[in-house]
């Protein structure tokens, strides 16, 4: 029982504390690729600490939603963090749910964020939520489909099980279905983390914002929580990619040394993925808003192909 408890605390802390580091690495890489020095890698931590210490200014038009949503979204993201295996081949709350509940938890956070963005009645919040909702109607099934393309081999929807199967079978990486699904997932990762070419996390142009537009009304600790939650989501989406496609190195049996080794491997994989994201973001420009659905549709098509290839075998 105590072990279970420690495990939950440990994974929660790991997810929450690693997320800003990943963000820092991505930002630093981008800055270097763009000929800039960039902020220190640890800057996202400083930012969050700064935000959390500040008082919040809230529109007098806003209801209790604006106050409640940041806590809710943050807790939802932490809970989601307990459903994704990181170092060990099982998630702390693995008995409670599978991939499907994970997708729904993301949906809850997204719904609350979008709803609250309408709360203060500012134009940018409204634009952000309408765009986010329009895109998520395609992004969510795309995420699900890409995951299913892998899960279908194991006949399970539990991430822990499919990881164990993948690692044990060590099946052929050159399997076309695997590559197709991985590419599909990568597109979803970009969309879900709000990065170029779908959204631009660094823009100051309020009219072009999607995710940032929904955060414009927040300040102080509320902003801190929302930013932190977004970073955790980014970490989780990348972890999902790792779990589904590159699980090798994860600890399958309990043991301190195994967990430590798995931790090092996990960190390494995250950093590599972060750098790849930064590369994509630097090489691409933001596409026209109405072409994003096409990109996501192509992700779904890739997933469908992967599933077909898998079934045909």
């Amino acid at each position: 029982m105590l072990e279970q408890f420690l495990w939950i605390i440990g994974q929660g802390l790991l997810v929450a504390l690693m997320a800003p580091l990943l963000q820092g690495v991505i930002k630093k890489t981008k800055a270097r690729l763009q000929n800039r020095l960039g902020a220190p890698i640890l800057q996202p931590y400083y930012d969050i600490v700064k935000y959390l210490q500040k008082d919040a200014v809230i529109s007098d038009q806003a209801s209790w939603l604006t106050r409640a949503t940041p806590y809710l979204v943050f807790c939802v993201m932490l809970t989601a963090g307990l459903l994704v295996p990181t170092l060990w081949g099982q998630a702390p709350l693995g008995m409670a749910g599978d991939l499907i509940i994970l997708v729904y938890l993301f949906a809850v956070a997204r719904f609350m964020t979008a709803l609250t963005a309408l709360d203060a009645g500012s134009a940018f919040g409204g634009m952000g939520s309408s765009r986010d909702m329009a895109l998520s109607a395609i992004a969510e099934p795309a995420l699900f489909l890409a995951a299913v393309a892998v899960l279908i081999t194991g006949g399970t929807s539990r991430l822990g099980d499919i990881m164990a199967i993948t690692v044990r079978q060590d099946w052929n990486v050159l399997d076309p279905a695997y590559g197709l699904a991985c590419l599909a997932m990568l597109i979803v990762v970009i969309a879900e983390t709000g990065r170029i070419p779908v959204d631009n996390p660094d823009t100051h142009l309020e009219l072009t914002m999607i995710h940032e537009g929904m955060l414009l009304e927040y300040s102080g600790r509320y902003l801190g929580l929302m930013v932190w939650a977004a970073q955790i989501k980014q970490l989780l989406i990348l972890t999902l990619l790792i779990d589904l496609f590159f699980p090798w190195g994860v600890a399958l049996t309990p043991g301190v040394s195994g967990l430590l080794a798995a931790g090092a491997v996990y960190l390494g994989k995250l950093l590599v993925l972060g750098i790849i994201l930064a590369l994509i973001e630097t090489a691409y420009a933001k596409m026209r808003l109405f072409q994003v659905p096409r990109l996501l549709a192509s992700s779904m098509l890739l997933s469908l192909l992967a599933i077909m290839v898998r079934i045909a075998k």
Partner: peptide, 16 residues
């Protein structure tokens, strides 16, 4: 102008 479509490479070289 490149900031209009989020192409940071163009922005930073332009300002350089």
């Amino acid at each position: 102008l490149c900031a209009g479509f989020g192409f940071a490479v163009g922005v930073s070289h332009g300002s350089r």
